[in-house]
Design a binder for these strands. Structure first.
Ligand SMILES: [Mn+2]
Ligand SMILES: [Mn+2]
Ligand SMILES: [Mn+2]
Ligand SMILES: [Mn+2]
Lengths: 219, 219
DNA sequence: AATTATTTTTAGATAAATCTAAATAAATAA
DNA sequence: TTATTTATTTAGATTTATCTAAAAATAATT
C-alpha cells in the first residue's frame, strides 16, 4: 500500500512521539507537524481506515504493527540520507535535517538498499540516532543524559535531544559533536551547570539546558 | 517562486517537447504526461498566471524566459541524479529514469551544487544527454543519427532517442552504450538495417528502428 | 457536584490536481 | 463552401490536504 508524503510525515511523527510517551494526543501531533488539531483528526481517521494505527476518538493513537513497520522504513531513509549528506557531500550536521525531510519520501527500495551499501551500512546518523536496517532492526545502546553523570566520569557523546538549528549551532561553537569524548569536572548546584573537559583542552561550562540535550555513553 | 511537483513536471515536459517542435500542443503534453487534455488546459492557465509560459487558447504554448530557466534547473537535477545513481550506486542506465523523476523535485540549491562537485561536474548523463551547469548552460556537440552515417565511417555513440526500458534493454543485449565506438560496415536497402562492428568483435545487425534511436558523433 | 477550562471532533470552506462529458473552435475532406 | 473530423476548452465532480469556527467531550477547579 503506497502512502502519500503527508501520510508518511504523520506516521513518522507518531512513531517519534510514541517512543517518549504512551498514546499520542491530537494536540501533540498538531504541534509537531505545524498544523491544526482539526487537520490531525481528519488524517487520523484516514490512517485508521488504512489500518496503520489504532485510534479511538478522544483517546489518542498508537501505531499498529504495520504502521510501525512503515515508520521504521521512513526513519531508515531519513537517517541514511542524513549520513550521505554529511559524509559524502560535506554538509554540516546542522544543515541536513530539512533536506532529508524531502529525500525520505523518494520511493525506491532498490535506491535505499544501494545507498546503504554505498555508505558502508552505517549504524548511526550524524546526530547519533541509530539507523534501522531493511528489516527495521537497529542497535540500542544504553545512553544517559549528561546531566546525570557523576563527577570524574569519562563519557562519549552519542546523541542529541533535538535537531534544532539553535542547539546544533551552540554545539558547533563549543566544538562538541557525536563521538566527542569528555570528562565531567564539576557540577554547580546554583544553576545546575556542568564543567567539562574535552581531550586535554581547557575546562568549559555547559548550561543545564545544554546538558539535558546531550546523551552520552560510558567508555 | 516555488513550484509544485506537478508544475515542475509540466514545465520540464514543455521544455523537452518545444526543443523538437515549435509550439507545444495540448494533446502532445497530455500524451507525454499520461494525463488528459482537460487537465493540461487547466494547468496551462495556472502556469500562464505565474508567467512561466506564453499561452493563447488553441495556439499551443512556449516557455517564457523564466519558464526556460526553471526547466533547465529541473533538467540539471534530473541528470545529475541519474549520473549519481549509475556512477556511485551502480544502477543500470536503464533503471535510473524513474527514480530521478522523483529526486529532481527535492528543493535545495546547496544539495544540487554539492552533488555536482561530489560527482566531479559531469558534462553528460548516463544517456548521453548534456547536464546544464548552475547558470543553465550546457555543452552542445554536433551529433548525427546513426541511420545517416556513411559506410566505413567510425563513430562514437553519444546519445539515445528515448529513455524507454525497451530500447535500453535491447542496447544492453547488443552491448551498446554511451561511449561505444563502432564502424558502419554495410547498409541494406530492403529494410534499411545497418551492419556495424564494435571494436574488433563480429559484425552485428541493427534494425532501422534501432539505428534511428541512436545518436553518434564523428571521431 | 457544578462550573470552568482544555482538548478534540464536527461542519463547512478552500486550493490543488485530477477526471468525464459536453460544448466549441480549428482543421480537413467532400 | 459546407460537412465532418479532430483538437481544445469549459462545466461540473472528485480526491487530498488543509483551514476556521462552532459544538461536544473530557479534564481540572472551585
Ligand atoms: Mn518528510
Ligand atoms: Mn538525524
Ligand atoms: Mn518528475
Ligand atoms: Mn537521462
Amino acid at each position: 500500500m503506497n502512502l502519500t508524503i503527508a501520510e508518511e510525515n504523520y506516521i513518522k511523527a507518531i512513531f517519534h512521539l510514541q517512543q517518549a510517551e504512551g498514546n499520542v494526543s491530537t494536540n501533540q501531533l498538531a504541534a509537531s507537524l505545524h498544523t491544526k488539531p482539526a487537520s490531525v483528526t481528519d488524517m487520523l481517521k484516514k490512517l485508521t481506515i488504512k489500518s496503520l494505527l489504532n485510534y479511538e476518538p478522544y483517546q489518542g493513537v498508537r501505531l499498529s504493527k504495520d504502521g510501525k513497520k512503515q515508520a521504521l522504513n521512513i526513519v531508515r531513509k531519513h537517517r541514511l540520507w542524513e549520513f550521505f549528506l554529511v559524509d559524502k557531500l560535506q554538509f554540516g550536521w546542522d544543515e541536513v535535517h530539512e533536506v532529508a525531510e524531502e529525500l525520505e519520501h523518494v520511493r525506491s527500495k532498490k535506491l535505499v538498499d544501494k545507498l546503504d551499501s554505498f555508505l558502508g551500512h552505517p549504524k548511526f546518523d550524524p546526530h547519533g540516532d541509530p539507523i534501522p536496517d531493511s528489516n527495521g532492526n537497529m542497535v540500542t545502546i544504553r545512553q544517559f543524559n549528561l546531566i546525570d553523570i557523576k563527577i570524574s566520569t569519562i563519557v562519549e557523546v552519542c546523541g542529541v535531544g533535538s535537531q534544532s538549528a539553535e542547539l546544533l549551532e551552540l554545539l558547533r561553537h563549543k566544538n562538541i559533536g557525536i563521538g566527542t569524548v569528555l570528562k565531567i569536572i564539576r557540577k554547580f548546584d546554583f544553576d545546575h551547570s556542568v564543567e567539562i573537559q574535552i581531550k586535554n583542552s581547557d575546562h568549559i561550562n555547559i548550561s543545564q539546558q545544554l546538558a539535558q540535550a546531550l546523551f552520552v555513553k560510558l567508555i
